[in-house]
Simulated scan of single mutants.
Amino acid sequence: MAARIERVVTSGQFTLDGGTWDVENNVWLVGDDHEVIVIDAAHDAEAVARAVGDRRLTAIVCTHAHNDHIDAAPELADRTGAVIWLHPDDLPLWQLTHPDREPDRHLTDGQVIEAAGADLTVLHTPGHAPGAVCLYDPGLGTVFTGDTLFQGGPGATGRSYSHFPTIIGSIRDRLLTLPPETKVLTGHGDATTIGAEASHLEEWIARGH
């Protein structure tokens, strides 16, 4: 059975640098009827656990460690026995939310995470956060971009741990080199494609952040 992609939208708050904002997050499930991985366990462990159902949850992969993408990860891991993966460059951000709980494993660039026939290649794409990653599966024709790339432009870089030239470089060198028809599934909001966003690169650079 081929892997499929499911989305759960959860609501909560993003907090950084003394500010707090209400947000809705996309939680992505990749798997089949028996096994699944979760990308970004945001806000509501119960809602994500319901979507997983009686399937085996093998991994919780964090695209980065802003609180709104990881706040439900430890509870979901404790409930299911899943392993939490995070790029080590985002440990300082992780510790702002979970000072007493470390991730279980460290993501590395080029690593492949397998689940139910899906092969998700880790692309280190810093800029929105130092340890931000995207997950690309050519078989599914899909890249999960977290908050690195959205419909209409790059993720925000106006707060601590972020850097606009770095995110532009990550998008240009790691994402826009993917096939233009690749579907882009984001951490918030609607999907897009690599081709649709590639046409805006120079505009983003001119506009700055």
Rank of each mutant, 00 (worst) to 15 (best):
A59C: 02
H106E: 15
V143H: 04
E24W: 01
L185M: 13
D33V: 00
D89E: 15
R56T: 13
I194N: 10
D147Y: 05
T63W: 01
A72G: 12
A65L: 09
P103W: 02
A65W: 04
T193H: 12
I205F: 03
H34F: 00
A132M: 04
A73S: 15
R50E: 08
P130T: 09
V184L: 02
A206S: 06
G208R: 01
K183E: 12
G141M: 05
G141S: 07
F164Y: 15
H163W: 09
E203D: 15
G110D: 10
D68W: 05
D89C: 06
T97F: 01
H66E: 11
A82Q: 10
A82T: 10
H209N: 10
D173I: 08
A42M: 10
T186A: 15
A47W: 08
W28K: 09
D33P: 00
A156T: 07
E24F: 01
T157D: 05
A45I: 06
H66L: 06
A47F: 06
V61P: 04
L201N: 06
L185A: 12
G53A: 07
N67H: 09
R7C: 06
E46F: 08
E181A: 13
L175E: 10
N67Q: 14
M1I: 00
D89V: 09
V48A: 02
P74W: 07
C134E: 04
L176P: 14
T80S: 15
V30M: 02
T121P: 05
